[in-house]
Design a protein around this nucleic acid. Structure first.
Lengths: 252, 252
DNA sequence: GTAATAGTGTCTTTAAGACATTATGGC
DNA sequence: GCCATAATGTCTTAAAGACACTATTAC
């Protein structure tokens, strides 16, 4: 039990000194995914500074007060900051992936990293930003096999990336999230391409057509075509009932 | 870009001072769930200290170096610490729920809280620990309706709890996680009770029997009975394919 | 024309929904 | 014997798997 003389909440807060405890840093790292040439690709930056100088890493940023902002923002703000300041790209969808706080994951100090997942169709070509020598989208298969080229992702980013791939693959089954990889208007073939790229397996066209059109709120036809192909736009549904099933699937 | 004279990683780390940045605190809060009298219940503690003195809260702890441990442990260690030091209970399953870092969620300072989800069948009766006046399992319906009694959960714990309920309900659909609410040996009726309690809706017995026994690796019969009822134990499967479906379901 | 992709149709198989029915043990 | 609950059985319906087929456009 705390032993303290009775005091009100206001007094308690006035006397509270945040600096009397050991510092813990909080960072936000982002796994930004997109589809390029039918392959699932992740945004990586080549670190210009220590630690892990010269190695590829996920774009990230420390959580510190932002100038002109009295207080800390929601963590999503930092995820967007990491994208725009390290690689000048914008994500169209952002969700929290998980938090990684194992000891020794950062050699500088104790860093708890909140990982976010971003994806979109419309990433501009990445451009190296603060503390970054290069920025590029790399196929996730390649990123998962960097050890074959005598290197590896910085920190525990390999682990974060693996978690991200697993999450995306799972979510395509039971959510309408695949549409976030596509522009406003797309064909069913485009959508099938997303599933094929993320799951890295062929999709049965006939059954896929039947399924996506039978699922209310997944896709809605719009009044135009690309060639002979009907164009659709994302519907309002966020989950797929029943889900689209897939077999196994390991990574990398 | 960072402007610094070229130096090696070792020198960089030697000169790195973690204390030169604004402090951010990291805490771990735990949503510990169990089933009591066919109701889903959550472990809450009544705060003995400011802030939110006298209000119910999820058990939690700050992430700080642990005595006798050179460095920070994985965050799960802190989740277990929160359970044992605030309420003297043990969870049998622990998973990360999400991280909550919105500004103002803690009046003392900027606190990023990593929430964990714990559950088990064998929680001992909780007992108030450090900084806690009471500890109790409360039906989640009641915890979600505290405002009807003129109070509410401390911090943003209502939000965390709601996230947890949603997560558990979802995961019963596609994982074998329900068995963690049960002791080593249980009947299919017991398992059905877990689903009924978590989903707060009646389950069709005949179809449930068929389903759980048709799903390989979900439950395995053991060589004994409770009365006329066959006893089972959890199988090795972690996911259910196809999932057990449920209708809608809002909370509270 | 041909090739490639868009889209349809059909038969089979799997599994869920909605019950009714039988079996067994506690009292 | 009676009740509660354990367990099985059956018919219907929903939806996936597999795969053949037709349609349209680019070239």
């Amino acid at each position: 039990m705390d032993i303290r003389t009775e005091q009100g909440e206001a007094e308690f807060l006035r006397d509270y000194d945040p600096r009397k405890f050991e510092p813990v840093a909080v960072s936000v790292d982002v796994v930004a995914l997109t589809i390029r040439e039918d392959r699932l690709c992740v945004l990586l930056v080549k670190r210009a500074t220590h630690p892990f100088k010269g190695q590829w890493a996920l774009p990230g940023t420390f959580v510190r007060p932002l100038p002109g902002y009295d207080g800390f923002s929601g963590l999503e703000v930092y995820a967007n900051r990491a994208l725009t300041r390290k690689a000048f790209v914008n994500g169209s969808h952002l969700e929290q992936l998980g938090t990684f706080g194992h000891p020794g994951r950062d050699p500088r100090m104790h860093v708890v990293s909140v990982a976010y997942l971003a994806f979109g169709p419309d990433f501009l070509e990445p451009w190296p930003g603060d503390g970054v020598d290069e920025a590029a989208f790399m196929p996730v298969k390649e990123a998962g096999n960097l050890h074959q080229r005598g290197t590896q992702l910085a920190f525990d980013h390999h682990n974060i990336l693996a978690t991200a791939i697993g999450r995306v693959r799972d979510k395509l089954e039971y959510t309408t999230l695949a549409t976030y990889f596509l522009p406003e208007a797309f064909t069913i073939g485009d959508l099938m391409g997303v599933y094929g790229a993320v799951w890295d397996q062929p999709i049965n066209k006939g059954n896929f057509f039947r399924k996506v059109r039978a699922t209310k709120g997944f896709i809605e036809p719009v009044d135009s075509k690309r060639g002979k192909a009907q164009l659709y736009t994302a519907g309002l549904a966020r989950t797929l009932y029943p889900p689209i099933r897939r077999e196994g699937g390991e990574w990398p």
